[in-house]
Design a protein around this nucleic acid. Structure first.
Lengths: 217, 217, 217, 217
DNA sequence: AATGAATGAGCATTCATTCAT
DNA sequence: GATGAATGAATGCTCATTCAT
């Protein structure tokens, strides 16, 4: 498989999954509050509902917890998006829907996303590439969406443009999660989604240029 | 003044500034490499070229170093931008120049920016608001640029649009600093600047819509 | 209860008590030798027979050790006295016995008492009042002894006199512990006890007064 | 001379004395407040009105400051007592006066005395004996007073009694300085002096014993 | 003589990890 | 499988002392 496996001493896979879910849930709450470094393994164990001894039956190092958290977050986001995007493909509407859904997921999972983006670099050289790869996969989902629109003649874009726009969408989604404290003073999530989509598809209304273009015809 | 002052035991202001510059330079290098939490005060002192004892003559706590770093970054970026933007105002060209310059600064100061965005939340409740305020000021600079273009009739934008575009520019600039590892595989900085500017000003070429628009005339 | 509890991470009360006893024993020896401030936590841990990590499983701060030491000393002394004084009450003999026992306890616990009187003021504003209260309780025990003798007509004393004598006994007891280095050159403990008791009960033989007494006969 | 000399780099004896007086005055205030160990040399220098650099021109180590403080205190107390006691000698009245004066000095210099008794043991093996010797000299002054009364037939006391009573007076004086926080709730200084003197000279009024003595006659 | 910047040994405290029960 | 007591390396910070100016 593609996963960087985190070793557990316990054999029962079911139990491992259950314990890790408890662990992740507790850890996210703590990381959100105090960050990865300021959170102790004892606190994680307590938040998860068991002892440190037990915690270490399911992970090898504290960093494993961070990895597990990051991994879980990506899985959730990916899953959410894949579901939504599986429907109508290659239409402008599916693109709009995809964007809207992504922004909504970013809003719902704000805490987790925030945690992830502030702590990934704490991952070891070992785990980091794996997480970054996941990120590229998510950007890739938007490239896909866009490419299909291009194929269907709904959009006219160069390859480079597809790539940069996919990045922009991804970053604007994160931006909502990241900078919600500032953006919320200006927009509701709905307004934000609408404005961003509109800008993306119609660009800025450049007065002079447009006028001259029109007058030329 | 508006600054949250970091207290020093040493009185000579000149010396304080000199030592802090050494300190910041060393700290940025270390924070970039291993993050704020994994960097020890001893390492910072060593990188700055003096002993821990001396380090603590110029700060009160380790967090002060982080604050000093953040503060210095903002000051540099602001200064750079203010210089460039002071020239032609309210024209599309000045906007383009502003964006290009900002992206360039983000590229040059990538290390510092990266550090800042991954460590700000480690700042105490005391220092954080001050840093966030600085960030809003920088977004405000782009709002300003845009508003002048609107006043001059070079752009047609609602107030909300001005705000969201300012945010987008800011975030896209950071994105280059943040995600350079991914973007560089696709674009040079110049390409990136050009593509983003173009997208911003002309929007995506939406085939069907345009066609219909033209056909209407 | 009335105790200022020192928090421990370890739950097992038995173990906590055992470890703290080890700790107190080691700490008293060290404090006696070098004082509270010159004794390091590592030394305390080592003297107690475990690692610093373990030390901190049973206390929160170094000051807790001092508090624990003071508290333990008072408990021991109180216990010793209460036992002895529970017997014959309200007679001159019980008073003499009480004094003798107290002086003996002060001799036996000289090390601890010395430590306490030289370090109490290092206790925080939080712990100090509690320790001083304990001290007052001990003085109170002598007031009690004296008052009963007064009630039984064995002594004729004003309330003020009871109070000052109780203080005197207490301080003379400590004096033996405190100034043993000087007093031992002059008296054995037994002599000291006898002399002090005699002085207390018969006063100084004031020549003139005696003369008048004699002339009366 | 009898003094353990504290070395100074500065040659001008006048200046040395002046600077040390400043130092002692500042140090006593600080020691009273926070104790010897919690007071830093920087604080002492500041309180004395000069820089640390200068402080170290007049002492060799921090401990020297403590020694200087202790020494100065003893000198003051001794001086005060010697003055007062030089007058009428060998009478009960001169004894009473001596006691009263001593108690008054202890009251006036409470801060200094308190400091001394809580910090002497911080003195090195080198300085301690010298300070203890000073203490014995003060006890000796009372022995002297008492002996003269005995010689004059004003008191009938064995040698041992003279010694223990001298100690008691000394300790009761310190007691007022030490335990003023408790004693003040019960007595004014004047009452305390009167009660102690009375007890010392007449002893406790032992009802039964006296009765039996009387009945014997 | 005075200053105060520099030094670094030293200290209290934390916390990831282990392992006997 | 679960527990939690034990460990000790690591770290932020202090402060007595020195020395160049």
């Amino acid at each position: 498989m593609n996963k960087r496996e985190v070793q557990a001493s316990v054999k029962d896979e079911r139990l491992v999954q259950k314990r890790r879910d408890q662990m992740i849930k507790g850890a996210v709450a703590l990381f959100k509050q105090k960050g990865f470094h300021r959170t102790t393994t004892r606190e994680i164990a307590k938040a998860a509902g068991f002892s440190i001894g037990t915690l270490y039956e399911y992970i090898r190092t504290k960093e494993d917890v961070l990895y597990l958290v990051c991994d879980s977050i990506y899985d959730h986001v990916s899953e959410r998006l894949q579901q939504d995007l599986a429907l109508k493909k290659g239409t402008l509407d599916s693109l709009k829907l995809g964007i809207a859904n992504f922004f909504q997921v970013m809003d719902e999972m704000q805490a987790e996303v925030l945690v992830m983006y502030q702590e990934v670099k704490s991952l070891s050289k070992d785990a980091l590439p794996y997480v970054l790869k996941k990120e590229m996969e998510m950007v890739g989902m938007f490239e896909n969406l866009l490419s299909r629109c291009v194929e269907n003649g709904e959009l006219h874009l160069s390859e480079k443009q597809v790539e940069i726009i996919a990045h922009n969408i991804f970053v604007q989604g994160q931006m909502w999660g990241f900078r919600r404290w500032a953006l919320r003073k200006l927009f509701t999530l709905e307004e934000y989604i609408e404005l961003q989509t509109e800008l993306l598809l119609s660009g800025i209304d450049v007065g002079v240029t447009r006028d001259s273009e029109i007058s030329e015809k």
